[in-house]
Design a protein around this nucleic acid. Structure first.
Lengths: 204, 204
DNA sequence: AGATTCGCTGGTCGATTGAAAAGCGAGACG
DNA sequence: CGTCTCGCTTTTCAATCGACCAGCGAATCT
């Protein structure tokens, strides 16, 4: 209401907004219950949409899952860029330290990434292979390069999974952590403490 | 056939053997697909049994899950005891280092533990609370005590989840790791390398 | 302004889910 | 040896699953 150009939503804009709402809901649903455990109806409910609408925008549950994976990895890439842009480092080690801290912060803000990766990584499936080819390989390649002070190159896979696990688990199982330790992983100072802790371990 | 006492299986023995087969299959199924994603029929198939038999031995899917959780945590306790019994250590730190290595070896042999914990720890549910009260609290308590050289006690929750994540992830997502890095986490020397790596990080 | 596109709704399909109930049949028991 | 127990199989149930389709109606186009 009011101006002609104000509040106007073209068909294409509306379409894209709806798709985003659904993808966001799908990301939560898949991360929370796993691919098989998440139902398209539950995802539709989270998105405030109709179940048939999911089939309309994305052809299948599988395709919707791929869209959700694209989204979380896009968020990861954007977050790392934003956190690191404009920073200058004297040594490669300093840059690596800040990269680790940036990753931990992202894991805290988006525990869905870790949940999705564990859910899919534990089984050999088409989705797992798609994930590796489209998202993990570029990341792992970047991890392989731009790295300093890893004495033995054969340790790189170990360092990769140690960083992913050590940096993400406490946030991925935040409800359990609260119940078990009384510590709330969502608290800002807890995130920073964890980031420092993990960075200090891998780059002493 | 043959002797009277040979090959004889009493009713009670048969019952217990069947229950164990089912629990073992349930552990695999739940770890692989998550609680909601795993179907009782699939579990029955793995156990070479009938779906109705699960309802007979365990009243519900939920109770079967609890039996599976009891089993994996029992295996953990037994494995740690066996790996550590008879060993003498000059310092507490040496003992802690061997405890870490023993845990990593168990995570490699039984990735189901980590998969189960992530699947349940990410949501607030009755199962999660049951898990915390019945299994995690004793373990966390033991982790809290018997530990040396942790400068700040407030870091203990962080160290706990760092150890769990760093020590387990590579084995929990072994199929993905093979595909991504070419490294097979199941290989004995890879397990030992990872154990040394994690222990070296947490106890430099 | 009339015709058309298309985002979206509501309903339906066969398949699969966890749980319950009835019946079988070999081992346990008097 | 006859009876009973009980581990197990089979069948059935309502609920839920992913996918499909016909139709509505407002935005878009001519």
């Amino acid at each position: 209401m009011g101006a002609t150009t104000e509040g106007t939503t073209s068909r294409a804009e509306q379409r894209e907004a709806t798709r985003e709402r659904i993808v966001e809901a799908a990301l939560e649903g898949f991360a929370e219950r796993g691919f098989r455990g998440a139902s398209t109806r539950d995802i539709a409910r989270r998105a405030g949409a109709n179940q048939g609408l999911l089939t309309y925008h994305f052809k299948s549950k599988d395709a919707l899952w791929r869209a959700a994976a694209d989204r979380i990895f896009g968020l990861l890439r954007k977050s790392l860029e934003e956190q690191l842009e404009g920073l200058e480092f004297a040594e490669v080690r300093d840059r690596n330290r800040e990269e680790i801290r940036a990753f931990v912060r992202f894991a805290a803000e988006h525990p869905e990434l870790f949940r999705l990766m564990v859910d899919e990584g534990k089984n050999s499936s088409e989705r797992m292979e798609w994930l590796v080819e489209n998202h993990l390989e570029p990341i792992y390649e970047g991890f392989w390069q731009g790295r300093d002070a890893v004495p033995d190159e054969s340790l790189l896979p170990h360092a990769y999974y140690v960083l992913a696990g050590a940096g993400s688990l406490i946030f991925a199982v935040a409800p359990e952590c609260r119940r078990l330790t009384g510590l709330d992983p969502a608290a800002r100072e807890v995130v920073e403490t964890h980031a420092d802790f993990v960075a200090g371990l891998l780059l002493p």
